[in-house]
Computed example of a mutant assay.
Amino acid sequence: MNIDNYLEGVYRQIAYCESDEYGWLYKGFNNDKIQIIFSTLHNLINKCYEKMNTRLPTVDNVSHYWAEESRNLLFAIELINDLQYKLKNTESAFGLDEYYSEILEKCKSFLKKIGGSTIPSFMDQVVIYYTIPIFIKKDSVKIESDVTHNYYNLKLIGEGSYAKVFKYYDQFYNKKFALKRALPNLDEKEVKRFKQEFKQLHSLSHPYIIEVYRYDEANNEYIMEYLDMTLEQYIQANNTKLSLKSRKRICFQILSAFNYIHSKGLLHRDISPKNILIKQHDGLIVAKVSDFGLVKVPNSQLTTADTEFKGYFNDPQLKLDGFSSYSMVHEIYALTYLMYYILTGRTNISDIDNSAIDKFVKKGLASNTSERYANVNEMIDVIRKIK
């Protein structure tokens, strides 16, 4: 097969919606035609998902997805599959980002070419990739260059026991980033915990967990995505305007993240509205779990019997048992408290006028730990039924 002729044919199929907006993400591909094809497909997919997100999450219902967007997204998926097959033995062979690969495959199962499509229940909002490539060159590596150095002004936006958090504007990427820098007076163990936080976050890949990019050993700092505000700030600013449906949507995003965290054998241990961050996308709200400084890792030596009790949503019983005894039942307690805060906008648990929420809270905070929810999925099932 003549690859150049094949690519020309693909290009002509998508010329009607040609876009070079994401071409810079695909400079690693030597073929100019492939760069514009990937940029155009990236743009087409983003537009389809931006429209789909206005219908998501579907929670316990289904939702209609318009005919034109259904056809466009299905066209993009089929074209990507064909490109992968035709280019698999060439120097332009490529794979898909893992998250997008899963989302595209899921969409393929329900998209229709005629009459629109029915989005199934319990489908979450799609995280749109604006600065991350969807198409990944096989057998490639990105090398950071030290030829040029850019310096950006930092603005302090937060400070905790171990670190300060700054934001800055990157002119090259044309967007804001956050930088987390360890305090200079940390002891050796505290620095190890700070590095472990980055390591754990870097190993996780989930749309509702904050993304980190690079660790600087010289300054004990790392770069991560910038989000607009904490969950606490968002709730305080919007408490009188949020519908129960919107509140449940945030709950499902956070619980989805914790389901993933627990599947990795990890416990967060510092669950609070300050450690959930919010990103606003033209009215669409995405919640992301952050601050893994107290994460409990299997077989880790960083948790000792005298570890200080932290996390103001944590089970008070831990003050007696010791923080090192933290287990799933304590994580469930903190998550229940957090869900109550999101559903009601209150931290004071009393006089709950919604019987379903009252029942949910009593089980999750039960003094007899054996009566609490066994896992996050049980919590999700109960919240779905709250009206």
Rank of each mutant, 00 (worst) to 15 (best):
N153T: 10
F29V: 12
N43T: 15
S290M: 02
K363D: 03
S121E: 14
T307K: 06
G23I: 15
L87C: 12
N53P: 07
K310E: 06
G364D: 03
L231G: 01
D306C: 11
G265M: 08
Y22N: 14
Q280I: 15
Y226M: 07
V212T: 04
K363I: 11
L204V: 02
L201T: 00
N368D: 14
N81V: 06
D270M: 01
F135A: 14
L266R: 06
V286L: 08
M224L: 09
L231N: 02
F309S: 11
I349W: 09
N150Q: 10
V289H: 05
V191A: 01
I235G: 06
L74M: 13
S290R: 05
K387A: 11
V59I: 14
D187H: 08
E217T: 12
E225F: 06
L244P: 02
H330Q: 14
G116I: 10
S355D: 13
Y11R: 14
C107Y: 03
H42N: 13
Y16E: 11
I14D: 11
I235P: 00
K108N: 13
E78N: 15
D32W: 04
S121I: 09
S256E: 10
I223M: 06
A366W: 10
R12H: 10
Y222V: 00
S355A: 13
I80R: 04
K296I: 07
E21K: 15
R372D: 03
